[in-house]
Design a binder for these strands. Structure first.
Length: 393
DNA sequence: TCTGGGGTCCTAGGACCC
DNA sequence: TCTGGGGTCCTAGGACCC
């Protein structure tokens, strides 16, 4: 989907079309003022501006007009405000986003049933068997999907048609927004090889930097590199994968069903907190995170036995601790208890900017959703032993 | 006044088992 | 005094993606 979060807000506020708009940060009191008013009546000048933002939020999505100023996804809002102070800033409306996400996926899947979900705004569709040949048949199908999605939602999307997921993903970026691009096996050298290695889905900032340092800039450079040499620098699996990717090879299937591995909740504080000095505040947040993740598990019908915490310190370094229980749980108190034990094992001398709670090793709960699980609190003896040994009883 | 929140996957060492 | 070969699970950290 093209600039998905921002495009959804433009449906609500069409008067903002063509303007630099940025989505991100939490809901603020300025945003409440907009709610409940006749939406189309709100003057462009009345919207909150990026320059008035104070906090630690990042950009989720920027409109194409905003991107012209050099702002984009994942950039801190404070930094973005320097580049484009006049941009309009709107919070993420998760419910609305999920609604449109479900809608476009349902429409696409009606046309092509073999669908892989890649998050709120992305999917892979397997139309290997399309009539009319993969190239021209694919183009017809892509147009059909775009039209069906636009008619139903008012939103545009970009489609890449290619022999595999790796190339399709790259192709989908070629003609954004509202574009279609077809990349066949013969187009590798002309369309793929000139691109930066960073365009390969799976090569991020670190690998890209390392490749650059080794004199490899484009995918063509990567394709020409000796596979043994790549393995020597990146390890057996990554080296071989890089070589195959550069040659356009990818045999991953379109995965239509998958089970979650973990669920988590985390929060970044408005100001850094200290474990001792801000004990009460930290404790309250910690308990709330446990309750939220427990509610998520129960609502979705999962239990998990690996309970973990995540800390991010004022220097942005992160630490994780986890503990595996004998039996899986979705109970807030049990999670809080185990997470509390994890917290005791983590360094707490530096100030914290983030606290998170995660439950992993998930399995489906054989219970109806929304049932409350019984929790047996630790006995005084168990609590004593825990305090003495640091083990869980 | 840098740097969200929710995920997946990989690596690597150690414990433990056969 | 020296010391196997697999395998799985657990834990911590980190890269990457949307």
């Amino acid at each position: 989907m093209d600039a998905f979060y921002a495009s959804v807000e433009l449906l609500r506020y069409p008067q903002l079309k063509g303007l630099p708009v940025v989505i991100g940060g939490g809901r603020r009191k300025e945003d409440e003022a907009l709610a409940g008013r006749a939406l189309a009546e709100i003057g462009v000048d009345e919207f909150p501006k990026l320059q008035d933002y104070v906090g630690r939020g990042v950009i989720t999505t920027a409109t194409y007009a905003a991107r012209q100023f050099g702002v984009g996804s994942a950039m801190g809002l404070m930094k973005a405000a320097k580049l484009c102070p006049q941009a309009i800033l709107l919070p993420v409306d998760f419910e609305e986003i999920r609604r449109y996400s479900r809608q476009f996926k349902a429409i696409a899947q009606e046309i092509v049933p073999l669908m892989e979900d890649r998050g709120v705004d992305e999917i892979y569709l397997d139309f290997t068997e399309v009539p009319g040949g993969q190239r021209e048949g694919g183009r017809v199908l892509a147009r059909l999907i775009q039209k069906a999605v636009l008619d139903a939602t008012g939103l545009t999307c970009s489609v890449g048609v290619a022999p595999n997921k790796l190339i399709a993903k790259m192709a989908s970026e070629f003609n954004k927004p509202n574009g279609i691009s077809i990349v066949g096996p013969d187009d590798l050298q002309t369309l793929i090889w000139p691109l930066s290695c960073r365009k390969i889905n799976g090569i991020g900032p670190k690998a890209s930097e390392k490749l650059t340092a080794l004199g490899i800039h484009t995918i063509g450079d990567l394709a020409a590199a000796d596979p043994q040499w790549l393995v020597a620098h990146f390890g057996k699996a990554t080296g071989a994968w890089m070589h195959a990717s550069a040659h356009g090879r990818d045999d991953r299937p379109v995965v239509t069903e998958s089970e979650p591995v973990s669920m988590s909740r985390e929060t970044t504080f408005d100001r850094d907190l200290h474990a001792v000095h801000d004990r009460a505040e930290l404790g309250a947040v910690f308990t709330r995170l446990c309750e939220q993740v427990a509610a998520d598990l129960q609502r979705k019908g999962y239990v998990g036995k690996t309970i973990g915490i995540k800390l991010r310190y004022d220097d942005f370094k992160a630490a994780t601790r986890d503990h595996t229980l004998a039996a899986p749980t979705a109970d807030a108190k049990a999670i809080r208890h185990a997470a509390g034990q994890c917290l005791k094992r983590a360094p707490l001398d530096k100030r914290l900017r983030l606290l998170g709670v995660r439950v992993g090793a998930l399995v489906r709960a054989n219970l109806e959703p929304n049932t409350t699980l019984a929790y047996i609190p630790p006995t005084p003896v168990a609590m004593y032993l825990e305090a003495q040994t640091g083990w869980l009883f």
